[in-house]
Design a binder for these strands. Structure first.
Lengths: 243, 243
DNA sequence: TAATAAAATTGGTATAGACAACTATATGTC
DNA sequence: GACATATAGTTGTCTATACCAATTTTATTA
């Protein structure tokens, strides 16, 4: 079995993960049934049992496998083809739904934030970037979005970034910080004049209002995002797991 | 340092986790700052470095710590006192918000499901329990809820269960299956006659409609739940993490 | 003083082995 | 046939060691 290459720069446990995933996909490891025991796998891949365990542990963490002491390790049902359980930007969300996102940037400026935003982002007297955008999917207006971002965290941020890439993509590729989590609050509302016009819906129609506060790995909040979606075109979908 | 007991039935890595958590809580390990290195900890607890690594790996998985190669292991900001990132029943959700839930059971019967429910729950010609309930929090109506549960999965289910405990609690204590995950779809709507009356709101008011499909560990769907919340009293809040 | 090189420190990967706890199967006994 | 018992197989826990890769700190050099 030459599936793992000891001289590869990729760690062996990673190569083993990929091989097990492949076998699950092609059906040689069936859902609900046990995969070979750790000892068998360590012989097959010619690595120590602990290395096999590391591969399996990662896959258990990702819920592809589950272990039962004394019985074996089993393939979990692959329920969610595309996982919908993470923090995503509007652009990423739309792409995942098979739609093409684009923006109309109404406002981009530095400003002193209001009290609420100041509290949420844990700011003193600092400035924030303020963006107001209309979000489109396949050229149909989908949401109106306001975003507040502390200037201190991204002093180099420029308007043109928001044309060419997702803000989240910018953070993860152009800066040395990374996104950890977000808290989202979702409520229903009725469209007033301010919402109806940009979304091309009637006043009195149902709208979905989502406030997201995003946090970096170091725990600092990096954005407050308030989005208003038209409810005839958008449903919020998410996968959750029992703790 | 006698914090870990080698003769305890609790594994040592678990005892070490608890000790590190305690130190984080009491402040001797500060958020954003590094904890002692793995080698130092292995000397301190008098265990091998791999055992310390297992403790730390679990805490990294649970997002209490994060590692940076060459720099150290750091205490993550404790953003979310009470995690809001799991699948919860209405009762659990309300208790977490500090409210007292109770039910008014309008309908409890066995029936042949409609086509949509049949597809979602992957049923043949089987029956489902059908429940319709008004959900109260602190004696105020909060939501109208319909639930479909395959009879085959819980043949012993009785009406009185829904008075005394959460359905999820029933599953986890009285049966040998366990809950794994759920997919939730959230949208905004306008209250019609059917919703306005039981929720004591006006027709035309905003409502939040949540459909939840719950899955067991073995991958089988065990419930379809359609809830209509009054939007003046209820916001859906959830924590999510970046994948 | 500033740039560079070397050393020390840290987490990342991997080995080989040991015993414990648990499950399923085969075996023997009544 | 029913029931206890041994046995083999599985994951769970832990050790002691080794080397690698990334980063920080210290020492050296220009």
């Amino acid at each position: 079995m030459n599936v793992v290459d000891k001289d590869s720069p990729l760690p062996m446990y990673y190569q083993i993960e990929e091989d097990i995933k492949r076998r699950i996909e092609e059906g040689s490891y069936e859902t609900g049934k046990p995969i070979p025991s750790e000892r068998e796998l360590s012989e097959k891949y010619e690595v120590s049992r602990m290395t096999v365990r590391q591969a399996i542990s990662n896959m258990v963490r990702d819920r592809l496998l589950y272990r039962e002491k004394g019985r074996g390790t089993f393939v979990a049902e692959q329920k969610f083809e595309q996982p919908l359980d993470g923090v995503t930007s509007f652009s990423e969300d739309m792409k995942r739904r098979g739609l093409s996102p684009h923006n109309e940037l109404l406002v981009f400026e530095k400003m002193i934030p209001d009290e609420t935003t100041k509290d949420i982002l844990a700011l003193g007297t600092e400035e924030v970037y303020y963006l107001k955008r209309i979000r489109y999917a396949d050229n149909e207006p989908m949401a109106v979005e306001e975003t507040f971002i502390p200037v201190r965290l991204f002093p180099e941020l420029e308007e043109k970034v928001f044309g060419v890439m997702s803000f989240y993509e910018y953070i993860e590729t152009k800066t040395d910080v990374s996104i950890r989590s977000a808290r989202q609050t979702i409520e229903a509302g009725i469209a007033g004049e301010d919402e109806a016009a940009p979304l091309a819906i009637d006043e009195g129609a149902a709208i979905l209002q989502i406030e997201r506060i995003g946090y970096l790995t170091n725990g600092l909040p990096f954005e407050r995002n308030i989005s208003t979606y038209r409810s005839d075109r958008y449903k919020f979908i998410s996968d959750m797991y029992r703790n």
